[in-house]
């Protein structure tokens, strides 16, 4: 049995001359929470729109549930719940009526409306017109209608936009539970910390290109700590260490080494001091995920 839920092959979208999405090979397996990460305008929403068949790819293929999206769009959409960007709400209807409209379309039992209202905690305001809702409530209503059909695949584009910290946490907890019932989730965000707290897999997109795709643990692995050494003479120390077969880097007025084991650190210290160099700082530095993210995307992309 093949457990691939989404597979895209060289997915490309051009708008006139702009390449918005450039040859993306995405792969999501059953039960994963796939965090789709990238700065604003990187092509996240365009990719998601293609996955939902809202726009047609210029090039490339999309397979969802092992079916070709081009040929079996309706069967595939039957098993997907989605929320794309700013939430959809019919302002002249109450929250419950909004869900009722989707329920009628998909022919879902009526009690499910109750359940999803309960899940996103909108039961109290369900009978108020949605034009009076706050942005956070509208967003939760959007998530409710995505959950309505109990989909096998949930696609959420920036689901925590406009929510307050407690709302963000609620949604995060909610998303984390979903794979227990066999659901797979694709969630996009421009905030690394958010993806870090819920995803099991990460895809990072920048300028339309996928620059990283692996498990979140692999991404975390990149934050292995390094040693920062403050010495009186950088050049001298560098060559001393090189003579001992230890590679180091002289950057930003500090000497940087790859290892941080205690024995290694004291050995370095002893070597340098014995060679007549004064060592005034030995520090273990851990790269934050933000640093890694910026390293991967390059600074021009973010803002």
């Amino acid at each position: 049995m093949n457990d691939q839920i989404i597979v895209t092959d060289n997915l490309t979208k051009k708008f006139k001359k702009n390449i918005s999405v450039d040859g993306i090979n995405m792969s999501i397996e059953r039960g994963q929470i796939y965090g789709f990460l990238g700065p604003n305008g990187a092509g996240k929403t365009t990719t998601i729109r293609m996955l939902l068949g809202l726009i047609k790819p210029t090039k490339g293929n999309i397979k969802i549930f092992n079916q070709n999206l081009n040929k079996n769009r309706i069967q595939i959409l039957q098993r997907i719940g989605s929320l794309v960007e700013s939430p959809t709400y019919y302002g002249n209807l109450t929250g419950r009526e909004n869900l009722e409209a989707v329920r009628r379309l998909r022919n879902i039992p009526e009690k499910r409306v109750h359940e999803v209202l309960e899940i996103v905690r909108l039961t109290k305001v369900a009978n108020r017109l949605t034009k009076e809702y706050s942005l956070g409530m509208k967003q939760r209503l959007g998530i409710a209608s995505a959950l309505l059909s109990e989909p096998d695949l949930l696609i959420l584009d920036e689901p925590t936009n406009g929510l307050d910290p407690s709302g963000i946490q609620e949604i995060r907890e909610l998303i984390k539970q979903l794979p227990e019932s066999g659901m797979s989730v694709l969630v996009s965000s421009h905030l690394l910390s958010e993806i870090d707290q819920m995803a099991t897999e990460v895809g990072i997109i920048n300028n339309g290109k996928m620059i990283f795709q692996d498990s979140i643990d692999r991404l975390r692995h990149k934050r292995k700590p390094i040693l920062k050494v403050g010495v009186s003479d950088g050049r001298e120390s560098h060559s001393i260490l090189k003579g001992k077969g230890i590679s180091s880097q002289w950057k930003n007025d500090y000497l940087w080494l790859e290892e941080t084991k205690p024995e290694f650190v004291s050995e370095i210290n002893a070597t340098l001091v014995q060679s007549g160099i004064s060592v005034y700082r030995l520090e273990e530095v851990t790269k934050s995920l933000e640093d890694i993210f910026l390293e991967l995307t390059g600074t021009e992309g973010s803002l």
Partner: peptide, 8 residues
């Protein structure tokens, strides 16, 4: 975007 990503 919501209506047209439903299975209809």
């Amino acid at each position: 975007k919501q209506t047209l990503s439903l299975p209809i």
